[in-house]
Amino acid sequence: MATILITGGTGTVGRRLTTLLLEKGYSVIVMGRGGASNRTSVTKNQAKLSYAKWDIDAQTIDESAIKAADYIIHLAGAGVADQRWSAERKKEIANSRINSCALIVKALSSIPNQVKAVVSASAIGWYGPDESADLPSHGFTEEANPFPDFLGNTCKSWEESIAPVASLGKRLVILRTGIVLSNAGGALVEFKKPLLFKTAAILGSGNQMISWIHEDDLCNQYIYAIENENMNGVYNAVAPNPVSNKTLTIALAKKLSGSFYIPFYVPAFVLKIVLGEMSIEVLKSATVSSNKIMQAGYNFQYPTIDAALEQLC
């Protein structure tokens, strides 16, 4: 089986993807700042799991890992929702993506390698709110222009930074990822917190559309992109049935608390005070189309929010 090099392999998605790849028989190299000291909790098939080190700031990388890899899955990047968006944090979010892509391009152009394809993360932050002019009737498609705000500009620079690998003769696939639902971290964990107190927190009006994806569907799309040579270019990694914030919150409450919960609305002005500029994304309605990846032959394991929450809860 092939060897897959994963950057960002210690994150929520990276850990799950590593497990799924090992279960399928792939060898996996996890690239991180700590190398072997940055171990994940993966225990199965450890013989096929190894670690390598890079330094994005210094633009250095373990050459042996590049030489050993057949494919690269690039997930690395500072968490968008981990902290308030100060000027310094926004710079870190953008640079962690742009500079890591530059290091991959540099490595593939200077180190002898057998890499056949690079599958890189991006995000649906590329798109604007639903009321923008680029929105077709069935949701944003991959042809839409990047929205001229912080995340739109960041995603544009992110994708432009990894694009040169295509000129090196490598197949390039970019997955613009929606809100990932996982018990290991991210949005779902935050949605669950108020339910510990039997309250369902609906954000703003609750009408904003959330383009989400179950973590296993996302991970399987990375694997699908590796295994299907016809995949090339940009694909939206979102489930085919986006839902409103209110629908998701109430569905989650019913799964976890039955009928014993109290719904309440968190006003937009409160979110703006607490989250600052990041509240724009929390309150933004973005309906994103999954048609292209389905036309490429991918079948969703969890196409509806009920199916996803049934498994996750």
Rank of each mutant, 00 (worst) to 15 (best):
T3K: 09
I6A: 03
T7D: 01
V13I: 15
V13D: 06
G14K: 01
R15K: 14
T19S: 14
Y26W: 03
Y26R: 00
S27M: 01
V28E: 09
M31E: 11
G32R: 00
R33P: 05
G35R: 05
T40E: 11
Q46P: 10
Q46V: 15
K48A: 15
K48N: 15
L49P: 06
Y51W: 14
T60P: 03
I66S: 05
K67P: 02
K67H: 09
A68I: 03
A68P: 02
Y71I: 07
I73G: 03
I73T: 08
A81C: 13
A81L: 12
D82E: 15
D82F: 00
Q83D: 14
K90W: 13
K91D: 15
A94Y: 03
I98H: 00
N99C: 11
S100T: 11
S100N: 02
L103N: 04
L108I: 02
L108M: 14
L108W: 04
I111F: 12
V115R: 07
V115P: 05
K116Q: 15
K116W: 09
A117D: 03
V119Q: 04
S120M: 08
I124H: 01
I124W: 03
G125E: 06
W126A: 04
Y127C: 06
P129C: 07
P129H: 07
S132P: 12
S132R: 00
P136A: 08
S137V: 15
H138G: 09
G139T: 05
E142W: 00
E143N: 14
P146L: 01
D149S: 03
D149E: 13
L151H: 00
L151K: 05
G152I: 07
C155I: 12
S157R: 10
W158D: 11
E160N: 14
I162W: 00
P164A: 11
V165Q: 09
A166H: 07
L168Y: 06
K170P: 11
K170N: 04
L172K: 04
G178I: 04
V180N: 02
G185K: 01
G186R: 02
G186A: 11
A187F: 13
A187T: 09
A187I: 08
L188M: 10
L188R: 00
F191Y: 15
K193H: 10
P194E: 05
S205I: 06
G206N: 04
N207M: 10
Q208T: 02
M209S: 08
I210A: 04
I210C: 08
C219W: 01
C219H: 02
I223C: 02
Y224M: 04
Y224E: 03
I226C: 03
N228R: 05
E229H: 13
M231A: 06
M231H: 07
G233P: 14
Y235G: 03
A239M: 11
P240T: 11
P240K: 04
N241R: 06
N241W: 01
L248C: 06
T249V: 09
K254H: 12
S257F: 01
S259E: 14
Y261D: 12
Y261E: 13
I262A: 14
P263Q: 09
V270E: 08
V270T: 12
L271Q: 13
I273S: 10
V274Q: 05
E277N: 10
S279T: 12
I280R: 05
V282C: 10
V282L: 14
K292E: 15
I293V: 14
M294V: 07
A296N: 02
G297L: 10
N299K: 13
F300T: 10
Q301G: 12
P303E: 09
T304G: 08
T304M: 06
A307T: 14
E310K: 13
E310S: 14
E310H: 10
